[in-house]
Write a protein that binds this DNA or RNA. Sequence first.
DNA 1: CGGTGAGTTGACACCGGTCAAAGACCGTGG
DNA 2: CCACGGTCTTTGACCGGTGTCAACTCACCG
Lengths: 230, 230
Amino acid sequence: MPTLPDPVRALELLSHSPVFGGASPADLRPLAARGTFRTLRRGELLFRAGDVPETLFMVSSGSVRVYRVVRGGTRELTLHVEGPRQLVAGVGVFAGSDPAPAHAVALQTPTEVLCLPAAAVREHVFGTPALAAAVIASLARRQAELLARLEGLVFSELGERLAAYLLEHAADGPHALPTNSDLAALLGTVPELVSRKLGEFYRLGLIQLERRQVRVLDRPELERLAGRGG
Amino acid sequence: MPTLPDPVRALELLSHSPVFGGASPADLRPLAARGTFRTLRRGELLFRAGDVPETLFMVSSGSVRVYRVVRGGTRELTLHVEGPRQLVAGVGVFAGSDPAPAHAVALQTPTEVLCLPAAAVREHVFGTPALAAAVIASLARRQAELLARLEGLVFSELGERLAAYLLEHAADGPHALPTNSDLAALLGTVPELVSRKLGEFYRLGLIQLERRQVRVLDRPELERLAGRGG
DNA sequence: CGGTGAGTTGACACCGGTCAAAGACCGTGG
DNA sequence: CCACGGTCTTTGACCGGTGTCAACTCACCG
């Protein structure tokens, strides 16, 4: 149970978030007043693809994975994983009444999210220039990320994508790998291939692997593989 | 040469566009006053990837292809083709000062675009709730399209993508195919494979091909191929 | 009539996906 | 403490789609 009332915590969260941080507390207060917190356990769904998005979420603690299910349910593609102070469902809420294009699920127990009613958010964001600017910039940036993602998935090979992942997440210090299934969903492939590639990198002496803890050994070579490969 | 002064034509164009059409003329007039028109010939570049986006474009006549060059310049991926009343460079302008992620080139002679200074657009859009709402909705929708595109490129086979293209562009009446290179850039593959697949569809009696004019013969079968293909 | 560019076609290599089997790991409950 | 079951991981064999290279045809044009 929170020690402070929701609106106070909501304001605190919003005003320290990258999207809304630039706005003044006065602008954020009415929005925070409409917010409620919700706690999820690992695996609990926040929303499903096809739902009409009626809530904007901001992660308070834990993390949320946003993903699509494709190929008749046989494959998943993780779009992004959001940590504290990040928005979830931003697109859906602002795209109008289109159904949400993705599922969202909590990755940790507990994961706490701030829920903001979509209608209130829209009304308030559109009417406040600073908020409108922040939201637009955030959407635009997200779109650029998505584009880079698309390019990687379509035009680079699995080895390049895995090398890029390792550099991003295990560059300094050891890193606990997610399951091969989760990695596969992130990299757009299947668990078997993740296993093979990891083994290959290990045999080449590029990484150290010990009980799902990975450490980069040969960073220049990994960068060569990730970067100008092909 | 236009018979009307630019601001008048600009207002006319803006107020009939899907993005800004919902706004009142009073809201649009200051924006239109800052607009200038520019005429391009086929193949002329509107901007390049890496440029800092200082202008928002709206196509007035003709069409503009937005694309990325990948794999060290050996491959192109067409992101979208925009016709009259559609925005180009929307993301770049609103994403902040990040460099543009794509190239844009005119597809026809002549192609006329309305050029709006980015700073003026931002200031005006953020300060006008109706415009902010429209822009956000437009960005969000574009992002959803991009997502669908990503999914198709990653998880469906060339045959499915080509069938989908044919259904979209040649469903009613004949359609002049672009060159195989252009089609390849659109479908995320190479000209040779486009040629093969088109030949295959022709031999199967799904389409009629005559001097680059294509006509759909067996629509149900194409829909089957494009849709729930395994 | 030669030249250029686009389109077509064949041979081939390789990556990635699938299926199946076996091994490693981790919890629970006896 | 050990046995058990489930999940995850690893590995092998195999197949099909896609990309590449090269040769050839065709249309168009000077």
